[in-house]
Nucleic acid binder design. Structure first.
Length: 599
RNA sequence: GCACCCAUAGCUCAGCUGGAUAGAGCGUCGCCCUCCGAAGGCGAAGGCCUCAGGUUCGAAUCCUGAUGGGUGCGCCA
């Protein structure tokens, strides 16, 4: 069990609704069940763990529903309807409950009083962005590792999705009250940075006027031309006609430094800022890999052995070899994994183990890795390693991001390094901007493939969720500007203190009810590590606002601005402003700027 | 051969870790601006949740198997 850090709990205010209505009502149900036990209506010793209070799918079923009667029927040895009837009577006596009725197989549907929803609006205005923060349950120290692309070139579209997802997830967890570290693991210890160095060397020679040829095993990308030039500017002719041994290490360091600058810039253009870049190279020659493996060895999880050949796809040059293996099968993997090559050098897996060991020793309560879907094969071994190193104490969740399919005008956009149509993160951000890039990348679950059409994402129509949500926010801002122009005070403190009892129309309450879902949404999304839920929620909230706005066409009473009636205007604008506050908070999690007006 | 991910409306996808009659957008059809808040809104049609079993009060959701698609599989990181 992970130890929970002390959390500053916001004291529950008695007699008032707190921020998460669903936990409030859940509390009421549990409390009522307890009373029923005390008076003998229910047997003692029942577990209430599975009692849930949830929004029903069909709004006709009320505002909230609880399954308590059905869950408890069997352990209590009573009929669900009997329990439900008794519980419903108790629930109905609470002032917040307008109606409690038993339905279906034993659900209790609750309809809440309008004042409850008016309080929600008031709470949003009072708490601001803090409205969605759970009062408790946060406070864990979490490490989110994402991007972690090799420092050998610019980031491409695939990295972009991982970057956006990881960043939004980190934001989400932070919003939910966790202490989050955003981290990038630099693969600067392996052979690929030697390849980078050799490629830069060729560009360096080129900068000196020599003609060069890029053989297999070098990177021919144009982006290294300036690196070669910069190297020339720095060292002059020092490396010309010198053996590789003289320059490899120097150029490697020079080149990876340059690449990291490039990557940092790319990420920055996307609005991603890492807390820490962790160098793989820093693990070598410092005994840290050895230490991590010694830890595994102490647990009897390292041994010398021979692996079976993979079936079905036998490599041509396969022959049995004795290797140093990690007993990953003891922690859920399918086969044991080599940590040393036959020449005695570490495999890539060894520093990965050491890196995760480092994260564990830094005291994180939970680790999250964001990988591309093509790295799915490493999930089990990485989890096995973390499980072994932490004795199962630190959970590691690995999120895989699926491919991004690019389109231009509905036609697939083929990427080819050779044809020069290789699409980089910078290409995407330069063309459509960071806000659109981020939002669109989050309109799909991480494990579902994503279609990205350069033209469609910039379209200003309902079909485009980015626009649709931004527009809702801009509309509210527009109302605030107009009210201000009409001499109505609309700062948050004034709106919070306004008389909201006029907010009773079904179209208005629908919006308030959607606002009430926000804390619960945050909780669910954070628990499941699913930031895309925020994007979908914002779309729904925007939709409710647009619907209400349009009702104003037919029903002037529903307009936010009530001609000549400041008090009425303030109560309605309070609702609109509350929507803007939540949209703004949600967009903040996604890393998208809420705009004041559309252009 | 094995592992992981996926399969929901004609299309693109949600579905809150087991709840009631499975939702949204696009597309199709119908409606709402002489003026008042149309970059929007309202309504209709559209489903054997790939298939077959199982678990239980209850399954798109969990388990097993099948089919179809994606990814990966000892000295590449």
């Amino acid at each position: 069990m992970t130890p929970l850090r002390p959390v500053l709990n916001r004291p529950q205010r008695k007699g008032r609704t707190s921020m998460n209505l669903f936990t409030d009502m859940h509390g009421l149900v549990i409390e009522s069940l307890g009373r029923m036990q005390a008076e003998g209506t229910l047997p003692k010793g029942l577990a209430f763990d599975n009692v849930a209070v949830e929004p029903p799918r069909d709004p006709a079923h009320g505002d909230m529903a609880t399954n308590a009667a059905m869950v408890l029927a069997r352990p209590a040895g009573q009929k669900p309807r009997d329990i439900a009837d008794a519980l419903a009577v108790r629930l109905a006596s609470d002032p917040r409950v307008a109606l409690a009725e038993v339905a279906g197989p034993g659900f209790i549907n609750l309809r809440l009083a309008p004042t409850v929803w008016q309080d929600v609006v008031r709470n949003v205005l009072g708490e601001g962005a803090g409205f969605g923060r759970p009062a408790a349950g946060g406070g864990r120290k979490v490490n989110v590792e994402y991007v972690s692309a090799n420092p050998t070139g610019p980031l491409h579209v695939g990295h972009t999705r991982g970057a956006v997802f990881g960043d939004a997830l980190a934001n989400l967890l932070e919003y939910a009250g966790h202490d989050v570290t955003r981290e990038y693991y630099i693969n600067d210890g392996g052979a690929q940075v030697d390849v980078l160095a050799r490629s830069v060397y060729l560009r360096y020679l080129e900068a000196h006027g020599q003609s060069v040829e890029f053989e297999d095993g070098t990177y021919p990308g144009d982006y290294l031309i300036e690196v070669g030039q910069a190297l020339k500017d720095e060292v002059g002719e020092a490396y010309i006609d010198k053996p590789e041994a003289d320059w490899l290490a120097d150029i490697r360091e020079f080149a990876t430094g340059r690449m990291l600058d490039l990557i940092r810039d790319d990420l920055s253009a996307l609005g991603v800022t890492m807390d820490r870049f962790f160098s793989e190279k820093s693990l070598y020659g410092t005994g840290r890999i050895e230490a991590a493996l010694a830890t595994l060895s102490d647990k009897g999880l390292i041994y010398e052995g021979v692996l079976d050949p993979p079936k079905g796809k036998m490599p041509e040059d396969w022959e049995p070899r004795v290797q140093t293996l990690f007993r990953a099968t003891a922690h859920g993997d399918d086969v044991d994994r080599p940590v040393k090559k036959s020449d005695g050098a570490w495999t890539y897996f060894a520093p990965d183990i050491a890196y995760h060991y480092d994260k564990i020793t830094r005291g994180y309560d939970a680790l999250i890795d964001v990988f591309g879907a093509d790295h799915g094969g490493y999930v089990k071994r990485m989890k096995a390693a973390v499980s072994a190193l932490s004795d199962g104490r630190v959970p590691l969740d690995i999120k895989l991001t699926q491919l991004v399919k690019l389109y231009k005008n509905c036609a697939p956009f083929k990427m080819s390094k050779r044809a020069g149509t290789f699409v980089t993160l910078r290409d995407v951000v330069d063309q459509v901007g960071p806000d659109v890039t981020r939002f669109v990348m989050l309109t799909r679950k991480n494990d579902a493939p994503l279609d990205f059409d350069f033209d469609k994402v910039l379209e200003q129509s309902r079909e485009n969720p980015v626009f649709y949500v931004q527009y809702a926010h801009a509309r509210v801002c527009s109302v605030l500007r107009k009210a201000d122009g009409a001499g109505i005070t609309v700062d948050d403190a004034t709106l919070e203190a306004a008389d909201l009892s006029g907010l009773v129309h079904e179209a208005e309450l629908t919006v308030a009810k959607k606002l009430a879902e926000w804390p619960r949404l945050v909780e669910v999304a954070a628990r499941g590590h699913e930031p895309h839920r925020v994007a979908f929620y914002l779309y729904e909230l925007a939709s409710d606002l647009h619907a209400l706005w349009n009702r104003g066409n037919d029903m002037p009473d529903l307009r936010f601005l009530q001609e000549g009636n400041a008090a009425a205007s303030q109560s309605k604008i309070a609702l609109a402003r509350a929507v803007a506050v939540v949209i703004s908070a949600g967009l903040g999690i996604l890393g998208v700027t809420p705009v004041q007006e559309m252009r």
